[in-house]
Structure formats: structure tokens, C-alpha cells
């Protein structure tokens, strides 16, 4: 979990990682070190004051050189809200996020449709599933040129779409996208705020954090040949893969 100057949701996201059964490792924007983690989350909030453009300066943070290299090597990377903006500015994901079309900050429970349940971060959903997450952004309008939008749609790289009233002016109601490999996901709504029904709109966000554990466990070299893949619901507390999964 990377913390930039201005990150707000790293604490909640670390807690979500823990609820999913993984160990959250704090990473610092100024470090050139991912400390041996198996996956990276870029949290929501702000970064470097978001001067110039949201995520534009964070892209050049020392830790981002490591994150970009790891992502290109296949490591699961999830960018939430400001993290999504950083991933776009880093060119790990196409397109950009601009100010909401209605010019107001939006903060509400938002219904979404999961469009791609085969990414590292969405395995534990079913394609077409509807979930409610928290949406809170000032610059959440996803934009890209028509060719890019058509490619995203054609290759199934749209991960989630807004349902109901258009919350922020995103083209084709896109709330999240992924790469061809499915390891990098950018998402404007906040799954980490929907992991505990006491203080959020249900637990619809938790599968983002359990999914990555499943995908890492599935790709772990330690898994012995012939062992059937784990069945049933994802583990919510602890894990028994024998390999420590840290984010």
C-alpha cells in the first residue's frame, strides 16, 4: 500500500487487505523499494496536492518507477480513485480522468456492474454482478479517444460501469478498466469503503481484495502439481496456502 503525500484512504485500504486475509505493507512514495510485496495498491485521496493534474507529479515519485516495472512484469496493481489517476498518468492504463462534468464533488453510494470478472482483482465476482461501492471524487470523469474506447470495449477491458444516473460524466459510464493481462486495474469508486456493513454500504467491495489473493495463490510456484484449486467461498480470515501473501 503506497502512501503519497495527501493519500487519504491508505488506512482503510490496509484494513480491507487485512479483512481479506492478507498482510498490508506500508510503502512510502519516496522509497525505491517494494519490500517484497506480492501486489500493490495505490490508494485514493490526493497526491502532491494534485498540482498540475491529478496524479501527474505522483507518477514521477521514486516508488512509481518500481511499481511501473513490477506491473509490466505482471504484478497485480490496483489503483483506486487518485490511484487510478496515477496509473493513467503513468501510462499503465489508457485514457485520463478529468473534472466531473457537473463541476461538483460527488460523494455517494454508487451501484456498479462488474463487466469483467477475470482480472486479478475481480476473480471473486461474477461478470454482470451488481455491487454498491462508495464513489467520492472531484475528477472522476473517464475520457479517452474513440479508438481507445472501442478497443477497451472490444477486448473486454472495461472492468466496471456505473449504473443509474451518470455520476461524473465518464465516457460510456466507465468506472474501471484493466490491461490485456488483467493484472493492472484502475477503479474510480472505493471498494475499501465497502468491506464492513457497520460503516459502509455493505461488503460489496471485499471481493476486490480477496480476488487478488486467489490469483496470487493460483500463480504461486509453491503450489504443487495435481493439487486441485481451492473451492468454495474465498477465505475471509487468514489463509492456508503456505505462502505469505503481502500487499
Amino acid at each position: 500500500m503506497v502512501t503519497f503525500p495527501g493519500s487519504l484512504d491508505d488506512g482503510d485500504a490496509r484494513r480491507a487487505v487485512g479483512l481479506a486475509g492478507a498482510e498490508a505493507v506500508a510503502l512510502w512514495h519516496g522509497d525505491h523499494d517494494l519490500r517484497g510485496v506480492d501486489a500493490v495498491i495505490l490508494p485514493g485521496g490526493f497526491s502532491y496536492g494534485d498540482y498540475l493534474r491529478s496524479g501527474a507529479i505522483a507518477r514521477f515519485a521514486p516508488v512509481m518507477a518500481e511499481v511501473v516495472a513490477a506491473a509490466r512484469g505482471g504484478m497485480p496493481v490496483l489503483g483506486i480513485c487518485n490511484g487510478f489517476q496515477v496509473l493513467c498518468e503513468s501510462h499503465l492504463l489508457p485514457g485520463a480522468l478529468i473534472r466531473n462534468h457537473h463541476r461538483k464533488f460527488v460523494c455517494r453510494d454508487q451501484r456498479l456492474k462488474i463487466e469483467n470478472a477475470s482480472t486479478s482483482w475481480t476473480h471473486d465476482y461474477v461478470t454482470g454482478e451488481e455491487v454498491t461501492l462508495v464513489l467520492k471524487n472531484g475528477e472522476g470523469a473517464y475520457v479517452a479517444d474513440l479508438a481507445t474506447l472501442d478497443r477497451l470495449e472490444g477486448e473486454g477491458l472495461v472492468v466496471a460501469r456505473y449504473l443509474g444516473d451518470d455520476p461524473n460524466g465518464s465516457m460510456r459510464a466507465i468506472a474501471g478498466i484493466t490491461t490485456e493481462r488483467g493484472n493492472v486495474v484502475g477503479l474510480m469508486p472505493h471498494p475499501e469503503h465497502a468491506v464492513d456493513s457497520l460503516c459502509g454500504p455493505g461488503t460489496g467491495g471485499l471481493p476486490f481484495f480477496t480476488s487478488v489473493l486467489q490469483s496470487l495463490a493460483a500463480s504461486a510456484p509453491a503450489a504443487s502439481a495435481g493439487t486441485p484449486p481451492p473451492q468454495g467461498p474465498p477465505p475471509l480470515q487468514g489463509h492456508s496456502s503456505g505462502r505469505e501473501l503481502v500487499l
Binding site: I98, H101, R103, A141
Partner: peptide, 10 residues
């Protein structure tokens, strides 16, 4: 072609 909400506000 890119929406400019700041320009629209002005």
C-alpha cells in the same frame, strides 16, 4: 472535444 468544465464555469 474534451469537456472543459472550468471554461464552462467561467
Amino acid at each position: 472535444g474534451i469537456l472543459d468544465p472550468q471554461g464552462k464555469a467561467v
